[in-house]
Design a binder for these strands. Sequence first.
DNA 1: TCAAAATGGTTGCAATCGCAACTATAGTCC
DNA 2: GGACTATAGTTGCGATTGCAACCATTTTGA
Lengths: 148, 148
Amino acid sequence: MEPKPDPNKLMAWARLLRTQQVLLERVEAELKQAGLPPLRWYDVLLELRRAGTQGLRQFEIGTAVLLNKYNLSRLLDRLEAQDLLQRDLCEEDGRGARVRITPAGRDLLKRMWPVYGGAINAHFARHFNNKELRQLSVLLGRIPGVAR
Amino acid sequence: MEPKPDPNKLMAWARLLRTQQVLLERVEAELKQAGLPPLRWYDVLLELRRAGTQGLRQFEIGTAVLLNKYNLSRLLDRLEAQDLLQRDLCEEDGRGARVRITPAGRDLLKRMWPVYGGAINAHFARHFNNKELRQLSVLLGRIPGVAR
DNA sequence: TCAAAATGGTTGCAATCGCAACTATAGTCC
DNA sequence: GGACTATAGTTGCGATTGCAACCATTTTGA
């Protein structure tokens, strides 16, 4: 791209950045307005629910939700303080913890989904048909680290 | 989308979120590694350079880069402290300031571009051809507030 | 004209983030 | 076994963010 910027590339990049800012801001605002915690809480709890009874190691959560370890550590502190999850010590690795969702955590997920899902629809999904949604998924999935 | 999540919608949404996190993290890391300030600084300075000699009002910068006023106020403090811009008082509105880029600001833009543009390419643009880039732009541009 | 409301911008304070340093356990290699 | 390195997670501290309150000027409207 150097030294002359390529307009196609720049436009796509700029819109991607802007999309992120606009959508996150709107969705977070709806959550907050409904008296619900931020999106990150949902992400973490959702991973934990998926993981089921054996729970997850912290570093597994970290790679799943793309959060570095110090911030994750403190985010889990907050969730644990609200009884949304529990950290048990891990028998197969004396350093680590095993993190499990609690009933209160599952309940919060259930309460957040209507607002979250509604916001995804209202601010994002409703502007596209199924073919376009798949197109977006395929295109973005080509970026390393995006598809899981 | 309620109460059953639509997989097409959810997948596109999830990848959009993830794209944002992955790309921002990588690009910011390259800037930092090169001893350069964060992306936000570039955004603001770029707007100011585009605005030319008459500069911009703070609220104009705010809407351009999607930054709320308190954070913008303090971000401008930092940029001003580095002599990258100057805030003159505004004659047509006694409340406001008029913000202009300085030569040092232009210079920083020039120094940041090779790293920034290179990172856009390396982490994003190189994974797509021109048609796909235009597709992305068009699709994302349908979200209100994204196209400018 | 003048009080009320709106707008532009700043600031105090609490919460969160980023970095670097730290503790503790696991794994590796001789 | 024992040093050496790597990994899991936590924490202190400074920087940044979010929220609410604030000041000053401008606009509105009876």
